[in-house]
């Protein structure tokens, strides 16, 4: 089992459209994981049936038992997050501000404060349109940092892949460079960077590549909308060559991305014969060859 993680520093580069196309092409030989938990969208393109759901707990939140509370205010003085509110002379917790550090519970003289596990979201294992399986999640309201949820989604997908003897796990990674991305990258065999020929595209690409270096991960790159700005495209290519990252495909600005989206289809399903689909298929083959030749 080998894991391919598709990421892009910034949003809107076509990362999910491409990951979904790869998943569609590979069919039952792959398990797909949507780790873009903040804005999970892949299920739309792959027509996930949400057949299997489990709760996901993460972090803690303080709770004040008003019967035991003597309103001494000790909790309020120690809380660094302004999470203890005083309403009509009674102390309550602002669940949104509470970080779950548990300091208040430790200093409460009347034992009125307890820490409770917080439901942070749901994890789904779904059947998708090509008969394969995908793992995805929905983060609950104001849920803490999705790093742990990302790890859970990946773990679930990898376990399925091992159990059912699938060759690949295709992971749609999280945006940014923070904890969720680090989590989505862990254990990847190959990283596919998706960027676009814009000022922000290059800027964010650099930050992501720096991150990859710290984990010594092998990466390839797909440049989307390379024709939006020829000069910027050149700068991106030059930068990538200094980093020893191969550009495996260049895609032109193409509204097929949007049209396929409207029909809720991956590009390779929506317009199987188009030049765009041919290029996507070729890049998927390159990715597979690359990964099969490792070690």
């Amino acid at each position: 089992m080998r894991e391919i993680v598709v990421i892009s520093g910034k949003g809107g580069t076509g990362k999910t459209s491409l990951s979904a196309s790869f998943a569609y092409l590979e069919g039952q030989n792959a398990i797909t994981a949507d780790c873009d938990v903040d804005a999970a969208n892949m299920h739309i393109l792959l027509d996930a049936d949400f057949s299997n759901r489990q709760d996901f707990f993460s972090g803690e939140v303080a709770y004040i038992d008003s019967d035991k509370c003597i309103d001494c205010g000790k909790c309020k003085t120690v809380c660094r997050f302004d999470a203890i509110l005083l309403k009509e002379n009674r102390h309550t917790i602002d669940r949104i501000s509470c970080e779950g550090c548990g300091y208040c519970a430790r200093v409460c003289p009347s034992g009125a404060i307890t820490m409770h596990k917080q439901k942070a979201g749901d994890i789904f294992v779904s059947n998708i349109k090509n008969g394969a399986t995908m793992v995805h999640a929905k983060l609950g309201f104001a849920a803490e940092n999705s790093g742990k949820l990302v790890a859970k989604v990946k773990q679930e997908a990898k376990m399925l892949a091992l159990k059912e003897d699938r060759e690949f796990v295709i992971t749609d990674g999280s945006p940014g460079i923070g904890c969720p991305v680090i989590s989505s990258l862990s254990g990847a065999n190959l990283v596919v960077l998706v960027t676009e020929a814009t000022v922000s595209g290059l800027h964010d690409l650099k930050r992501v590549v720096e991150l990859l270096k710290t984990f010594s991960l092998q990466a390839v790159c797909i440049i989307n909308k390379y024709d939006l700005n020829k000069e910027m495209n050149k700068m991106i290519e030059e930068y990538l060559s200094t980093q020893d990252i191969e550009v495996i495909a260049r895609l032109g600005y193409d509204e097929t991305f949007a049209h396929a989206l409207i029909e809720a289809k991956p590009i390779v399903e929506y317009s199987a014969q188009s030049q765009l689909s041919v290029t996507i298929k070729e890049s998927w083959e390159k990715i597979k060859t690359k990964i099969r030749n490792q070690k």
């Binding site: 949003g11 903040d38 804005a39 104001a142 849920a143 803490e144 940092n145 945006p175």
Partner: peptide, 14 residues
């Protein structure tokens, strides 16, 4: 604001 709906967005909005 940052994208998404998690903690950073809430901090940028509240």
């Amino acid at each position: 604001a940052p994208p998404g709906t998690s903690c950073p967005v809430i901090e940028a909005t509240k």
